[in-house]
Each structure stands twice: as C-alpha cells, then as structure tokens.
C-alpha cells in the first residue's frame, strides 16, 4: 500500500524528515509515534501529496506521490490536524461537496453522507453551521469527510489531539470498527502513547526525522525494555540476602529485576526466596509502556511536554 525509499524533506536548514524507508502492507494499522517536531506530520503530508519530498521516493496506493498526484489522491482519505469542514458551512453540505470532489454523483454523495451522519452520531448537528459544533462533533465530522469515498487507505494526523478522554475513546472505537468492517489500511500519527499501544499492531517510532524502531507494541517493549519485578522486604538484611540469592541489584529494602514474562516468573521467585529464608513482604510487577521504549531508545520521555521533558538519569533507573 505504501512504499518509500530514502524519503526526505528539508525546510531550509532543518531536516524535518531525514531518509525514511517504509513499507506498509494492505490492511495494516500503523501508528507513527514520536514527539512534536519529530517529522511524523511532514511524512504524512508527503505521502498524501500535500508537499513534495526534497529527495527520495514514495509510492502510495500504487502511484508515485510526485508524478501521479491525482491517482494517489483519488485512492486515499486524509484527516488532517485541523477541521476539514468550513466553519461557515453546514456539515451535510460539506459531506456532499466532499463526495462531489471525489467524482461521486449528487445522489450517491447524499446517500453516503446520510449513512456517515448516522453511523457517526451526527444526525442532530449535521444541518447546523459547523462553527456551532463542539470539538468532538467537529472531529467526527472530519472523520466522516475522510471516509465519504470509502478509501482503501486512510491517513489520520493526530486524530485525537484536543479531545477529552471520552471522545478519544469513541474515536478510537470508530477507527477500529471501520477497519474491521472494510479492511481499510490505516496510518495514523499520534503522540498519545496509550493510543498507539491500544490501537496499532505496528508502531513506528520516529525521532529527528528518522525511524528508530518499527515493531508491534508488545515486541518493542519486550525487546527494548522488558518487564520489571519490584520486590519489597521488611528488613535490609532480608533484602541483602535476597539480592545474593537472585543475583539482582538492591536499592535499600527493594530489589529491581528486569525480565521478560514477569507475571509467569513471580511465583517461582517468591518460592525461591521463601526457601532461602528471605521471604518478600510485597511484590509489584511493572509492564513497560511505549514511553519506556522511547526513553530507552532516545534518552528522552515522550510524555506530555514532548521532547523537552528530559528526565534525569537517576529517575530513569528507578
């Protein structure tokens, strides 16, 4: 569905996208994850023909994004960061215009608009001015517009930015339902870790315009971070004994063990400690997040605040 080689975009001195090789197969749901300014949106804008690459190549839906722009545009849907619907327009009018823009007949556009209005719960607001709609309603209208021509490849740029958690969850549901029903290939950018984690079966981590990791969330976490078992002890001497038994680093009355498949290992560890006479008083299993992965890969956190939120090394270890 998508094939890029050395795709790059430079703005004056800034290498916004610095050589990306990417292959996306039909039916995949891929999340591009990275801090603000990492080059996610710029990549998306090149793939959707909005801006020409500085160098490299990209084929989208079978056509070159520079030489065959119209062919690409006919086959993709794009939901940008802003609101697609004009604020002085009415939602239904915009949906019909959008259908016409893709060459659908007036009648088909109307029918399809009505379907989407219904399925996205916009019936009550579709005939009001867009400017009077709430943020969540506008976002659903954007989704409807991106879907009017039932594209087989859909791009979403930060689809849930600015939405409250409830609307975010709704939106994610809609996207997943869409995919289940039509086997749409979906590429979305996000800086919400949980979103990438829960939705995508493939996460591409981008930083400074380059792909630094590309795998399923589970494998990314297993490979780069692993689970962590934290054992607490009543006394320092128990902790010291346990540290010797398990050959694990001790921090005060705590032991930190990094491992794969932690939940399956905990019972055995507890048994071993009991047998050695240093029973644990408490135990906690921490599954890694994608933020841990990003932190491991770049030394920076991806949490709200973006690239600037650099953590100190001490905190990283704990």
């Amino acid at each position: 569905m998508i094939e890029t080689r050395g795709l790059a975009k430079h703005f004056k001195d800034v290498r916004a996208v610095d050589g990306i090789d990417l292959t996306v197969a039909p039916g995949e749901l891929v999340a591009l994850l990275g801090p603000n300014g990492a080059g996610k949106s710029t990549t998306l804008r090149m793939l959707t023909t909005l801006i020409p690459p500085t160098s490299g190549q990209a084929t989208v839906a079978g056509f070159d994004v520079v030489r065959r722009q119209r062919d690409v545009r006919l086959r993709i849907g794009y939901i940008g960061q802003g609101n697609g619907a004009g604020h002085s327009q009415r939602g239904r009018d915009e949906l019909i215009s959008q259908g016409r823009a893709y060459g659908m007949s007036v009648r088909d556009s109307r029918t399809r608009a009505a379907e989407l209005i219904d399925s996205l719960g916009l019936a009550e607001v579709a005939d009001r001015r867009v400017s009077s709609l709430s943020g969540g309603q506008r976002r659903r209208l954007d989704i409807a517009m991106g879907l009017i021509h039932a594209p087989s490849l859909l791009f979403l740029d930060e689809p849930s930015t600015g939405l409250d958690p409830q609307n975010r969850a709704n939106l994610q549901e809609h996207i997943l339902a869409l995919r289940a029903r039509h086997e749409t290939t979906i590429v979305l950018t996000t800086h919400y870790l949980d979103e990438a984690d829960s939705m995508a079966e493939r996460v591409i981590v981008i930083d400074h315009g380059r792909i630094i990791a590309d795998d399923s969330p589970a494998r990314l976490k297993a490979e780069h971070v692993g689970d962590r078992i934290i054992l607490g002890f009543d006394t320092e001497s128990d902790a010291a004994g346990a540290a010797a038994t398990l050959d694990a680093p001790r921090q005060g009355r705590q032991l930190h063990i990094t491992t794969d498949g932690a939940p399956r290992r905990v019972p055995g560890i507890l048994d071993d400690l009991k047998a050695a006479g240093h029973p644990a008083a408490e135990v906690e299993v921490r599954r890694p997040t994608l933020d841990d992965v990003f932190l491991k890969l770049t030394g920076r956190s991806l949490r709200e605040g973006g690239a600037e939120a650099t953590r100190t090394p001490e905190l990283v270890e704990v």
């Binding site: 959707t48 023909t49 909005l50 119209r70 545009r73 006919l74 993709i76 794009y78 940008g80 802003g82 609101n83 697609g84 619907a85 004009g86 604020h87 915009e94 959008q98 823009a101 893709y102 060459g103 954007d142 517009m145």
Partner: peptide, 9 residues
C-alpha cells in the same frame, strides 16, 4: 479545510 480540499483529486 483548505488542506482537506488540497488532498482531494
């Protein structure tokens, strides 16, 4: 909304 028009064919 201009961007959205630009992505259409």
């Amino acid at each position: 909304s201009h961007e959205r028009m630009l992505v259409t064919p």
